[in-house]
Amino acid sequence: MSGKPVLHYANIRGRMEPIRWLLAAAGVEFEERILKTKDDLQKLRTDGCLLFQQVPMVEIDGMKMVQTRAILNYIAGKYNLYGKDLKERALIDMYVEGLADLFELIMYHEFKPANEKEKDLANIMDKATNRYLPVFEKVLKDHGHDFLVGNKLSKADVSLLENILGLEELKPDALAKFPLLQSFKARMSNIPSIKKFLQPGSAKKPLIQEKDIPSVIAIFH
């Protein structure tokens, strides 16, 4: 073993993408074991690798970790992206949990039937611009620092940037009414480890193509 974390998932963003983002932001190289068929997933189950029979699964520090939020919390704690004390951690968790709700909306959008996509996009943008983005615009204004919590990069910043870029893929002017979030995006995107992750050829996954959706669904169902 190289000592690098090993990520087990299909070759899509899905629930593994926030994990890829956080490892990349921490400057941690990782390997991927891509699930290509339902048999690949079943083998992990049969081998006893999946505590709840589900991926994402990450091999790290001798553990086979499952459950996305548990994995993210471990990575954040290990690489000092989780605040300096319990109060900062609580803020980070609140922000990340809120963003997780937005992430779910964005993640499932590409899997919606074509005749539902327009309505679904309108719902996503309504919630983003009226519920989620105003929260973080205000946090940045009130906090007065470059980062959401303390004055240091945390998993909350990484999650916010990931979601912002996901929204902009769906609607390029998503941040039009949020100048502080525009500045935040520019700052975070220029952090060297994140900038590297945003370059072509990195481990960052592209949006799923419609032609690939049936094969991905076949793995998980």
Rank of each mutant, 00 (worst) to 15 (best):
G3V: 00
K4C: 07
K4S: 10
P5Y: 09
H8M: 08
N11P: 10
N11H: 05
M16F: 05
I19Q: 07
R20T: 02
A24R: 02
E29M: 05
E32S: 12
E32G: 07
K38H: 12
K38Q: 14
D39N: 13
D39F: 08
D39S: 13
Q42L: 15
K43H: 14
R45N: 12
R45T: 14
Q53F: 15
Q54R: 14
I60D: 04
I60E: 08
I60Y: 03
M63V: 04
K64L: 05
T68S: 12
T68L: 10
A76N: 06
K78Q: 14
Y79W: 06
G83S: 09
D85L: 11
D85W: 03
K87A: 04
R89S: 01
A90G: 01
I92R: 00
Y95Q: 12
Y95I: 03
L102A: 13
E104F: 14
I106A: 04
Y108F: 14
K117T: 11
K117N: 13
E118R: 13
D126N: 06
K127C: 11
T129N: 01
R131M: 12
Y132E: 00
E137S: 10
K138R: 14
V139I: 06
G144K: 02
F147E: 04
L148E: 01
G150T: 11
N151D: 15
K152E: 15
K152S: 10
L153G: 06
S154V: 01
S159D: 07
S159Y: 12
L161P: 12
E162H: 06
E169Y: 07
K177V: 00
L180W: 10
F184Y: 11
F184V: 06
K185A: 07
K185Q: 14
M188Q: 12
S189E: 13
K196W: 03
K196F: 03
L198M: 06
P200N: 02
K205C: 00
P206I: 05
I208A: 00
D212H: 07
D212S: 06
V216R: 07
I219H: 02
